[in-house]
């Protein structure tokens, strides 16, 4: 699916970041006490993370809020200096912020924008072309191609403030990719977009990866982004990497069950249903069982034979639930 090779582009070894934050109690007394003497606390946002990403890979970066995803992205793009550990991207040390490094990467932040608000996106693109040394003709050709991939050709001449959120995000992507970076970091690129725009952005990213062999590392709240784009996921929890590998394998490991949902002709006593397997939920005529992968065929056959079935469906639990299950437990490794 992705255009991966063996060459390591992103190398991260034992990377950690600690912040010092002021600690203040609420209320007037807390305010005054804080005014006189400040208390500080160390927050370990990232606590020793290691991984390698090969050229052309598309990797999903997962974890609940505050897990350390954004901090890691910022360390990889040179915005944040690591407390300990090392990181190299395309052979550069990000925090030196060498101009050649900056020309090879991009960071798209779903919540922040770089386009000039009151002008058409084309004007901002002109600045970016000059700043990233893209020759004029080349820039025009790239803008044309990217705009077509994103299907926003006709909105580039409208002031950015007039664009819808989805259009604006696509224009931001265009601006971020105009210099054709070979390593693309995305932080929640689809946040707040409607389903159509989300699908379009995903399709664009896959296309970009295939056309230019770009390496992509993205965080997202929407599992659909990850399942659609990434074969490999990095799961962070509380600043630590708890899983690195195949998305499908992770699902099998964490959620070794499938859901069998049956709609019956009439409600039946619970004992009769429980005899067939672990019941997840009974809701009138609709019953849901959790069935281990190995027992699936047998259980389904049994249900069909012994119960008055009107409809039957076998599904994987939604991946959000799977992730939630990983993070609900105290130590995921212990369960594996």
């Amino acid at each position: 699916m992705s255009a991966a090779s063996d060459e390591v582009v992103v190398h991260v070894a034992d990377l950690a970041k600690h912040y010092r934050v002021a600690d203040k109690q609420p209320g007037v007394v807390g305010t005054l006490r804080h005014f006189v003497r400040r208390k500080h606390r160390i927050i370990e946002a990232v606590r020793g993370v290691s991984f390698d990403i090969a050229r052309g890979e598309m990797v999903g970066f997962l974890g609940p809020n505050g897990a350390g995803k954004t901090t890691t992205l910022k360390m990889l793009t040179g915005l944040v200096h690591p407390t300990t550990g090392e990181a190299t991207v395309s052979g550069f040390v990000p925090f030196r912020r060498h101009a050649d490094f900056l020309r090879q990467i991009t960071l798209v932040m779903g919540q922040k924008q770089q386009l000039v608000w009151d002008l058409p996106a084309l004007d901002s693109l002109r600045i970016n072309a000059a700043v990233y040394d893209v020759p004029k003709a080349e820039a025009e050709q790239r803008i044309g191609a990217l705009a077509e991939m994103l299907s926003i050709t006709d909105i580039l001449t409208q002031p950015v403030r007039k664009l819808s959120l989805g259009q604006r995000m696509k224009a931001e992507l265009l601006a971020a990719l105009l210099h054709r970076p070979s390593v693309v970091f995305l932080d929640e690129p689809t946040l707040g977009l409607d389903v159509n725009a989300q699908t379009a952005v995903r399709a664009f990213l896959r296309d970009y990866n295939e056309r230019y062999g770009a390496t992509i590392l993205l965080t997202s709240h929407y599992m659909a982004d990850i399942t659609a784009l990434c074969e490999r996921v990095l799961l962070v929890h509380d600043g630590r990497l708890v899983y690195d590998g195949d998305l499908a394998a992770m699902v099998a490991r964490v959620a070794p069950h499938r859901e069998v949902e049956v709609e019956l002709e009439q409600p039946l006593p619970a004992e009769q249903l429980a005899a067939l397997g672990e019941i997840e939920r009974v809701d009138g005529c609709v019953v849901r069982w959790l069935v281990p992968h190995g027992a699936l065929t047998r259980t389904v056959a049994q249900i069909m034979q012994t119960l008055p079935v009107r409809d039957l469906r076998v599904t994987d639990p939604p991946i959000e639930e799977i992730i939630g299950r990983v993070f609900a437990g105290p130590a995921p490794e212990a369960r594996a």
Binding site: L79, A99, Q114, V131, Y132
Partner: peptide, 12 residues
């Protein structure tokens, strides 16, 4: 607001 980050990513 952290908007400086956007500018820091540019090679200028």
């Amino acid at each position: 607001t952290g908007a400086l980050s956007q500018r820091l990513l540019q090679p200028i």
